[in-house]
Nucleic acid binder design. Structure first.
Lengths: 211, 211
DNA sequence: GTCTATACGATGATAGAC
DNA sequence: GTCTATCATCGTATAGAC
């Protein structure tokens, strides 16, 4: 092939525009111009704009979920060997830390974090189905682990709290830039490690709350 | 005018489609067909698709914010008269309860809740600026009240926790319908009053969490 | 197999007739 | 105030060059 990286260039340009402007407002023409390829190359390589979005998601999500699942299984194995139950905070950390670490400079996945945040906000969007299919095994395992660490709560209560925690997480995934009302004396440029802890303080307390 | 309720019919149809499908995927043609008006009527009455969205938002948001601000001021006045500091849970309730109550059947604002949830997920969207302008006074007052009820936390910590709580709330505002992974034995059709309490359990504990 | 040029129907928007 | 005509741009499809 004369342009061996045509697909990759399209994927990168698409990821960038989808994350910055959203899926619908982004035109294939802006993507192909940025990637320096012909307009029809998208449909040739990916079939449609929708399938291009799917490819953009899968390229990053599969490796990320392998890391998250690996850390979760490692935690569960470690605590089981010690005859303990895993701590809620540590269970959440296996999910949150690999996610927010993608925002580190040079991770080349900064755009992806924002993109996923946006996808999670479009209930009936095409991407949601794709996304959820890839998340289901990890979500089920995470729910199991949380039930282990919080045996006093019903599955109903647990479900809603996981739902809330994910809402919080997806919210900060979207919000790199200042778009909400920020008081003057508050600095929102927090190092990723600190943000993980600030989030885990909040989410762990919410998960463990007495009714 | 020969069609006195042309504007209202357009507003209702737009609210419905914007909430269900999102702003960009909705065509003016589908709105005008549903509202039984001519295509150009939108641009005549509202100027553009974007200004139509603005009108849709303002029609519901202004009354809602008056209710929320009224309840918050009433709470602050009551506790001050008693020489007490307001409880974090009650401060959050003045914001959350009026919001989720719009999902009650017959409130005629069910679509609006989902619409706001979607707007909050589009950081650079046109609607975000409109929305935030209308929210700023209430947000500042809410932040003040939370600082009163949680004097031990820095404004930095407080800011992030408010941010997380809003993320959780906007998440459930979007998610009427089942789109996430729901275990078989969990019932997501919870009465609004119960949902308010389930949410306040989580969010209050998160706000009050020790670091 | 890859890629390009081109065309088609639908969209948001606007100008001008009535 | 309302409607028709019109425009640039959108996603998509296809024929054909290399």
């Amino acid at each position: 092939m004369s342009q061996p990286d045509t697909k990759q260039r399209i994927l990168c340009a698409a990821e960038h525009f989808f994350a910055r402007d959203g899926y619908h407002p982004t035109s294939l023409r802006s993507i192909t111009t940025e990637a320096k390829v012909n307009l029809a190359a998208v449909n040739y390589h990916f079939g449609s704009k929708e399938s291009l979005l799917e490819a953009v998601i899968e390229r990053r999500l599969n490796p990320l979920n392998e890391i998250r699942l690996g850390q979760l299984e490692a935690l569960l194995e470690k605590t089981e060997r010690a005859g303990e139950t895993p701590m809620c905070r540590e269970v959440l950390r296996t999910f949150v830390e690999p996610t927010l670490c993608l925002r580190l400079h040079g991770s080349d996945s900064e755009d992806f974090v924002a993109l996923i945040g946006r996808i999670l906000a479009e209930p009936r969007g095409v991407a949601m189905t794709i996304f959820m299919n890839h998340m289901e095994p990890l979500m089920n395992r995470l729910f199991q682990a949380l039930a282990l660490s919080l045996p006093e709560w019903s599955r109903q209560t647990l479900f809603w709290r996981v739902h809330f925690a994910f809402g919080s997480l997806s919210h900060i995934m979207r919000c790199h830039e200042r778009h909400s009302i920020v008081p003057d004396d508050v600095n929102i440029d927090v190092p990723v490690d600190d943000l993980v802890d600030i989030f885990l303080d909040f989410a762990t307390a919410g998960m463990e709350a007495t009714q």
